[in-house]
Design a binder for these strands. Structure first.
Ligand SMILES: [Mn+2]
Ligand SMILES: [Mn+2]
Ligand SMILES: [Mn+2]
Ligand SMILES: [Mn+2]
Lengths: 217, 217
DNA sequence: ATTAATTTTTAGACAAAACTAAAAATATAT
DNA sequence: ATATATTTTTAGTTTTGTCTAAAAATTAAT
């Protein structure tokens, strides 16, 4: 598989995790930051290789084969992210771009030895689950902070958006994986929340709360 | 720079280390396992980018810029090889292929952090010197075992050929970096040698001796 | 000094992956 | 139900890196 095919496959996978229905050409084009016509070309190729099932105008879904291949790419991406943070002391906002390259390194032996070297981690630095060598994903129970009721407390377990800017915002506000967050107040006009972290109150927008995953305790 | 450009540059570098004179199109084609016409195309592109100086029919040499770029690729290749052997417990015959891919990962920060993580190694698992971040190469003093005089003893410090088959031959004969080798006899008819390792005598061909680097003590 | 052999370059073609512009299909709105 | 808007596909280019076949330059041999 080429780098490009792998990138498409991974994006179709990520879109599938959320959407349930078949994935549209435009949705893929948007994620790939490319043109719809380029996507159509690639979908034909992936269908030819039986990695996706595709019918003109009807969108695509991953085949069993494509689903497994996609999970192996995600596995590589997330294991490399763990390596970069745990062993090389990168911060969580620096690793995504580098992992985008490293995820394409071929050797299965390499990734399995890396997994062992890292002590078989179950989550990456952003709280996302790491598929094991057979493609099994640990089930992570979580909900968006924006959906947490008033007076409930959650532990931060992941981020939906892992862009540098969002992660750096969280750093600035001293929010990290494991941080306890209590919802104090919700402003119905703009859906902003007042939360409490380590005894300090903080106002956050709905956009922020909609990108933070928490687990209730 | 593309992967392909980097591969060409690295090969021109390796050929330059041995040959002194300008590098021929055919020599590059042979190393790249490609056609001379493809090499010509690429040389034009590298010349355009001022990475090599090239004149039709006269071969190429690296510019200062190309020389530095090549050394950075070699640096990455060798550091990744050290990582694979030291941290992931690969054997020295397994790492070259994987490093061929890893050497193209872009981030400077990554490679410098990797260097630090590995404790700034000066040699890779095959005894080859690792350029530092400024491109300085530790000078390794060494000679071929085939050039060692009778009754002299040398310590194995490197291999000229780092193919899997040669490295596995050395494993089988219990020859590793650091092994002491004494030349007992040279057969003038076929240039084969009788050597002594850990008290055991061993007959090796001239081809073997011509691919093993030793340092006299 | 010619001729022959070898090396290198050019010319033209091809596959992969992208693009633009236009056509076709589907979805939405009146 | 028809018109409009949106999405998706096709058709035709472009760029990168490769190839084959043929021409040109260089080197070696008589
Ligand atoms: Mn990532
Ligand atoms: Mn991640
Ligand atoms: Mn190597
Ligand atoms: Mn090496």
């Amino acid at each position: 598989m080429t780098y490009s095919e792998e990138n498409y496959l991974k994006i179709i996978y990520h879109l599938s995790v959320v959407s349930k229905a078949d994935i549209s050409t435009n949705a893929i084009a948007h994620e790939m930051q490319t043109k719809a016509s380029s996507v159509t070309d690639m979908l034909k190729k992936l269908a030819e290789k039986e990695l996706v099932s595709y019918q003109k105008y009807q969108g695509v879904s991953l085949t069993q084969k494509g689903f497994f291949a996609a999970k192996m790419i995600v596995r590589k991406h997330r294991l490399w992210e763990v390596f970069l943070v745990e062993k090389l002391n990168f911060t969580w906002d620096e690793v995504h771009e580098i992992a985008e390259e490293l995820e394409h390194i071929q050797s299965d032996k390499l990734i399995n030895k890396l997994d062992e070297f890292l002590d078989f981690p179950s989550k990456d630095p952003h709280g996302d689950p790491i598929p094991d060598r057979n493609g099994n994903l640990p089930k992570v129970e979580k909900q968006l902070l924006s959906e947490l009721a008033i007076n409930k407390t959650g532990i931060c377990v992941g981020v939906k958006d892992s862009s540098t800017s969002f992660l750096q915002y969280l750093d600035k506000q001293k929010i990290a994986l494991g941080t306890q967050i209590k919802v104090i107040e919700k402003e119905s006009f703009d859906n902003s929340l007042t939360i409490e972290i380590n005894g300090n109150k903080l106002l956050i927008t709905n956009k922020i709360a909609g990108n933070l995953f928490v687990k209730t305790i």
